[in-house]
Amino acid sequence: MAILEVKNLSKHFGDLEVLRDISFSVEEGQVVSVIGPSGSGKSTLLRCVNQLERANGGEIDVCGMNMMRTENGKAVYAPKKTLRQIRLKIGLVFQNFNLFPHMSVMENIIEAPVHVLKMSKQDARDTAAELLEKMGLTGKEKAYPCELSGGQQQRVSIARALALHPDILFFDEPTSALDPELTGEILKVIKELAKEKMTMVIVTHEMEFAREVSDHVIFMDGGVIVEEGEPEALFGDTQNERTRQFLKRYRSTGEEE
């Protein structure tokens, strides 16, 4: 069953068309990477799927629930209750972490389980401790975000998202705000999640990583999906001229744009 199904999605800011006729789906256990140059609409796509931005047309279904569809040319969103239900099934890891600075690592992670899922504090703490162990952050429970490195902060924010047991986890350029030597630790964590068959959609500039970890890669440019397919096909020998150009630029500079 497709966990995420996007059909003919469109989004514009005023006159500026940011997304045009975007369709793709994500199956359970799949890891999908979204790559493309800056301004290609990758992040906007993620934000539309995560309800942080309202789409203007198309259809989005999450976990078998309809989030939005188009009726008579107008985008219609599901009732608030459904939107909330959907929200609790998805997690998002932000580029700049967005941890709550006034809360310790432990408080950040148990905030939603306790106040949204109404778990007991003890249960929430136990789950959080397990997650922190998985993230290699045992012993940092009482630390505040400002006392951690960028890589550690990002791992806390992954743990915070996982604490709600999402069915699908989204990453919005999870390593873009990090020093190059810190990106490795985040990519390692994501790879481990992939091994556990966590369903994930990752917007990234890390081409090697995308090639290695994904089951499916989507290349976007100018608000449309230019090409998609298995990583080996897309990175290995794409027939698409635009994709080839983009990948060439990455290879020649080695790193990011």
């Binding site: 942080l52 998805i90 998002l92 932000f94 967005n98 709550f100 939603a112 949204v116 915070r160």
Partner: peptide, 13 residues
């Protein structure tokens, strides 16, 4: 920052 509202929203607060 806006990100604080967005993070809270994503967590279902």
């Amino acid at each position: 920052p806006k990100g604080q509202y967005e993070a809270a929203e994503m967590l279902g607060l």
